[in-house]
Nucleic acid binder design. Structure first.
Lengths: 344, 344
DNA sequence: GCGTATAATGTAAGCGCTTTCAGAAAACGT
DNA sequence: ACGTTTTCTGAAAGCGCTTACATTATACGC
């Protein structure tokens, strides 16, 4: 293995002399930045075709001071959430003609410690999509002050920074699913399994839960609030713990599908049937939801769309156009079986 | 929103004059490409620090003719498989000091149709990791002939191209899990739910299944071979169909976890218990496996590691070092409940 | 037709780095 | 001491493009 002839790619000069024009003209037909005679365009295009020429990105970047690439900053998450998001971002980026450079906070030495002069930032990209909590506030500020176009996904900007932010209608979705539990099934002892404390999506989902309770005259029982971390294991433990206390319970609203799955495991281990003994519902409608037994009733979050919207906001920012300071994507109730409904 | 002061970043010249040296020296301390007096190094480093200087990638690329980025080509897959793979690739790339540019075949106009002068290829990257079937053979050949370092993930190279290839010990893993079914549980009517026809991993898993059958004197019954597509829906339909025929059946070996999930659904819908009536096992051990009910016995495939190894092979190739022509990563049996074992 | 506005092309100056090449400084040998 | 290596440093030439700016061909007006 190994040992292969290197090769040298044609440059714009080759194309120019092949077509019998100057490199400026070649550049113009490539970028369509100035009128060129139809005949010339044809000649140049033929030359490009024949030589199999493709402009070299680095040179264009250097000369044109735009990288045509967008950076994506991810925290060290795993999970079901991630994939559709990436898909949305990737496809959005390509539609707009941008390349996608990915950087996970994982690979960075000291995510929190402050300093992480991320190689991505102001150097290789025209703008950055920053997923919740993958950047310290300090670093975010620095990039912002620097003037780098930024869009936040599932996180609102720190005080004073006008960074567009895209996320879901979390409160609304949560309220609706909890109301479903109350109105359709008549549950009254509904536990909530939250996400991590600092996570905004989780916060608003909790608010939605509270709102639904209030709207139906139910009082919030703090014993029914379990802190999860978007992790099935933690959820399972938390629910097992709750079950141990003997607090009455007829449903669990998990702030994410993975926690819902963990809750189901705990319930099952305790010999409880779902949904007959305790109903379980989730949030996100990730791939996982339909695979669970019973299939999970949840709130569909347009994850992929969020990625796409984030890109389009970023592109507007890059182009100096106006952007929405916050975009809330609508969610939708997905009824399956785990809430007690029998459909499908 | 919008309207922010742009800003101009310091260049190597700024650093040079700040430190009172020439840009050549600055370059040398940055790249450690030639000896520099300790005192000078310190001065330069202080300058870099103070000015918050970071070299501009495009300029380095242009001057140094290396991009320091690796491209990843993905097909339009969804799925559980994807995430750990990306994680492995991403972290591997960063460990080796490379950026990661992602490109999904999805975004390409005509993936199969041949022509797709992918912007990634020879222009913005030092090398490419190509996931199975994200590139036509023709395109692959072109890039190879061009001399671009290439590594294939889960696909062997076309005739005559010496491209390193990393994948799992599929046959071995499949054989072992099927033998588990036969030896430990005594099943004899074991159906197989394959992946898509052209997929090599799937092919070898099927071979492993056959091998296990043969080794135990069982004859292969073609009625028990169901063609899946790594998709739960298709698997579900296929299994439902099989059940309809009344062919005796005591276990199903699915070539991937998602199909296993689909199989489980079909079984459940037919009123069959898992594993009492029919056992189900999978392959891959994706996140999904442990969430299923009952938890899925499967073969753990080191997906993340595969990504990491692919990167390291690619980096060797880039550096002109020798590489393995094929890397088979060992798999491991993961016993849960769906096979009939009771552990955990 | 002639002057002038307009379209089409070419010339050349960088973009911010890396890297020869050569010169200056320091270290060595005897 | 003096020549000779060995270190260290700087000047300058690109890398392959984009983009003013200048120039030339073509169109228009009357």
């Amino acid at each position: 293995m190994s040992e292969r002839k290197p090769s040298t790619r044609p440059t714009i000069d080759d194309v120019a002399s092949y077509a019998g024009v100057s490199i400026a003209t070649v550049s113009r037909v490539i970028n369509q930045t100035a009128p060129v005679a139809t005949k010339t365009v044809e000649r140049v295009q033929a030359a490009i075709e024949n030589l199999n020429y493709q402009p070299q990105a680095a040179a264009r970047t250097l000369a044109g001071r735009k990288t045509r690439t967008i950076g994506l900053l991810l925290p060290q998450i795993g999970g079901y959430f991630f994939f559709p998001m990436l898909q949305g971002i990737e496809s959005g980026a390509h539609v707009d003609g941008y390349n996608l450079l990915i950087h996970s906070a994982l690979s960075n030495p000291d995510p929190d410690q402050g300093e992480m002069p991320l190689a991505l930032g102001e150097h290789n990209t025209d703008g950055l999509i920053v997923f919740a909590h993958s950047l310290s506030e300090k670093e975010l500020r620095r990039l912002y002050d620097f003037g780098l176009p930024l869009v936040l996904l599932h996180q609102s900007p720190p005080e004073g920074l006008a960074i567009p932010n895209v996320t879901f209608e979390n409160k609304d979705g949560a309220r609706r699913i909890v109301e479903h539990l109350i109105e359709v099934h008549g549950y009254r002892e509904i536990a909530i399994l939250t996400g991590p404390e600092e996570h905004e999506d989780s916060y608003w989902r909790e608010m939605g839960y509270l709102e639904a309770l209030n709207a139906h005259g139910l009082v919030f029982n703090s014993a029914l609030k379990l802190r999860g971390k978007f992790s099935p294991e933690i959820a399972r433990l938390a629910v097992a713990g709750l079950l141990g206390t003997g607090v009455p319970l007829d449903a669990i609203f998990a702030a994410d599908d993975e926690s819902a799955s963990g809750a189901m495991m705990a319930l099952r281990e305790a010999g409880l049937r779902i949904p007959e003994d305790v109903a379980v519902v989730g949030f996100d409608d990730t791939l996982l939801a339909s695979h669970l037994t019973p299939p999970l009733t949840t709130v569909h979050a347009p994850i992929e769309q969020a990625g796409r919207v984030a890109i389009s906001q970023l592109v507007r920012l890059i182009n100096g156009e106006k952007t929405e300071s916050v975009t809330l994507l609508p969610t939708e109730l997905v009824i399956r079986k785990s809430c007690g409904c029998c459909s499908k």
